[in-house]
Design a protein around this nucleic acid. Structure first.
Lengths: 245, 245
DNA sequence: TCACGACGGGACGGTTGCGTTGCGACGTGT
DNA sequence: ACACGTCGCAACGCAACCGTCCCGTCGTGA
């Protein structure tokens, strides 16, 4: 699934979310402005630049990091974001709480990290020369992705949480935008270029028409097993709708 | 335990929740309801554990009940289902925890009660003689309903919780089925009768096409302020899609 | 060889919620 | 006048987490 991440990526991501390097000593400092502390890229001068030996072998272990990531996904699916606890994640991952806190500030950063990682997973942009065929391929890919029980459990949960938490909201929108949405836009543009669709069509509504019905069926109604005819029929109807725009 | 209150009674009490006008006229009716409930308590066993006196004036106060109901809605909107606590509800309602526990077994029953009540609020079934006009009216009603911040906060939250809790899931489905869905089906049937739509069209997909795009836009993307042209355009496109089925 | 730091484990004080219980006060049917 | 049950309030013991800290162990690069 998302085990594609390379070592370098994982370490970087971990470092980025969990207070880059030097932060450790400063972290428990006074109230507030913990976030701005990370901004210190170049040595800000001051009294604590002594960067002793980076490390010998005492480096964050990648297998532990991955175990935590997997545990977060499982925990999210099992109990939802609100009830997800660091203790629960650590327990599920078979690691100590400290291992988690060494990498991430807390629950929010942990989840944001993972969501952002999901955003990267690009899906293919079909270009078959036919709007209807392109759409059907997109649907097949999307519906297969949403079929995974973990995804279909986590998505609505984060979605709901996004209404309350701007950071989750942004991460989620970015993920959708970089995935589903950008592909759909490319399909639309190609169809316009071929003359299959009108040139000035309302893109917002077009995206709603493409995304809405399948999302409703798979995520809201949670009916993962669709009859064979479903996607083709849906594709044909959606194509008709788009052409009327 | 709290055998005094049955589930049926809780649901009935929910009926009085009626947002607007209906409540007033229903109020006297609820007296009869209460009476039957009290009679039902001791009558249930038949073994008669000597529950002689229903009560004097020591009866559950309706204003307290309503305060709790309102508080639940506010709490759900503010923090979500998972984080909603009885203590928080009582605090927000300005009542004691005991007042809540005297009426409901716990959080789940409390929420189920309210959700079931919402299901009753029927929305009008337009019948203008034109599929497109009917659809537009349905959309206008629905989008206005979803515009309420309380609703748009609570819905995705309960939706996510439904993936984990079968009882919430059922209540939610029932609410949708008795509302949006039944109206949409009636609109479709009328259009078929008029010959605007094919007779054997796939109802599932038709419902997805009707519901999905607007839900996606208002609940998921949370864009409540739609340009004036939005609903008419969406209606036209959806009509085109339906006619292709 | 040896210092370094991550590892799991366990414990800390503090916070929040659970569901229950007891209290005195209140108001209303019998 | 009386009994009854709800009212708000406060407290109970229990549980789960929070974020931090200290511990002894372990593997590795300098």
């Amino acid at each position: 699934m998302l085990d594609r991440m390379t070592d370098a990526e994982a370490v970087e991501a971990a470092g980025a979310t969990g207070a880059a390097g030097a932060g450790a000593t400063e972290a428990p400092g006074s109230a507030g402005t913990a976030g701005s502390a990370e901004a210190a890229g170049p040595a800000g001068g001051g009294s604590a630049p002594r960067r002793r030996a980076p490390a010998g072998a005492a480096v964050l272990r990648e297998d532990v990091t991955q175990a935590i990531r997997s545990a977060v996904l499982e925990e999210l699916a099992a109990v939802g974001y609100a009830r997800t606890s660091i203790e629960g994640v650590a327990r599920r991952a078979g690691v100590g709480k400290t291992a988690v806190y060494r990498r991430w500030r807390g629950k929010l950063h942990l989840v944001l990290d993972i969501v952002s990682a999901l955003a990267v997973e690009g899906l293919p942009a079909p270009d078959t020369g036919s709007l209807e065929t392109d759409l059907r391929l997109l649907y097949e890919f999307t519906s297969r992705a949403l079929r995974h029980p973990v995804a279909s459990q986590i998505i609505p949960d984060l979605q709901a949480e996004a209404a309350r938490n701007p950071e989750i909201d942004e991460a989620l929108r970015k993920a959708v935008r970089s995935g589903q949405e950008s592909v759909a836009l490319r399909i639309l543009a190609a169809a316009v270029e071929r003359g299959e669709l009108r040139r000035g069509l309302d893109e917002d509504i077009a995206l709603d028409l493409i995304t809405g019905p399948l999302y409703w069926r798979t995520v809201i109604l949670r009916q993962p097993r669709l009859p064979k005819s479903h996607l083709p029929t849906l594709t044909r109807a959606t194509t008709a709708a788009l052409k009327s725009l």
